[in-house]
């Protein structure tokens, strides 16, 4: 067990969420749930983050931002997709402008379903991701490349 899981700092990105999931994430910070109990801090800065928490689906406007943020987070890092939008596009899946879930661009480690996802399940998802974070750290120390290839095919397709 390393310190990583005792001090996970989040970067929360709203890809194109309806704000429903975002409010639930913020609810986790309130006295009611108080995730700081677990050392969780919501940083606004990818350079300081360990867990990338994304709400909403991807589209033409935000796909580069999503990838950029992901790349700026130092390893080891995990991605948690919050809500069904982030997982698959959710209720907006069929929209002409929606490209789908975020896993089309970046590797997702934990999916937290729900529309909106409840704070309890969000916390649950993040705690689950801590285990993966630890695994990645171990792999990193051993020198095994853990970074799954990014889904460049979709990215390219999206760009066209």
């Amino acid at each position: 067990m390393t310190y990583l899981s005792k001090s996970p700092w989040l970067l929360h990105y709203n890809a194109s969420s309806c704000n429903g999931c975002d409010i639930e994430i913020l609810a986790c910070l309130t006295p009611m749930y108080d995730v700081e109990r677990f050392g969780i801090i919501n940083t606004g800065n990818p350079k300081h983050a360990d867990i990338f928490v994304v709400t909403g689906s991807i589209n033409e406007e935000n796909k580069d931002v999503l990838v950029n943020l992901y790349e700026q987070i130092p390893d080891p890092k995990v991605v948690v997709a919050i809500g069904i939008c982030a997982a698959s596009g959710g209720v907006f899946r069929e929209c002409y402008n929606v490209m789908g879930g975020i896993d089309k661009l970046i590797p997702v480690d934990v999916y937290v379903p729900g529309c909106a996802a409840r704070p309890e399940s969000i916390i649950d998802g993040i705690v689950k991701s801590l285990g993966i974070l630890e695994e990645k750290r171990t792999a990193m120390v051993k020198g095994i490349p853990v970074k799954p290839e990014m889904n460049t095919a979709v990215r390219e397709a999206g760009t066209e």
Binding site: N45, P46, K47, D64, V65, N68, Q72
Partner: peptide, 12 residues
């Protein structure tokens, strides 16, 4: 040390 770009609010 891995080099990355400065943070630009997610802009590439």
């Amino acid at each position: 040390h891995r080099q990355v770009k400065p943070y630009m609010g997610g802009m590439t």
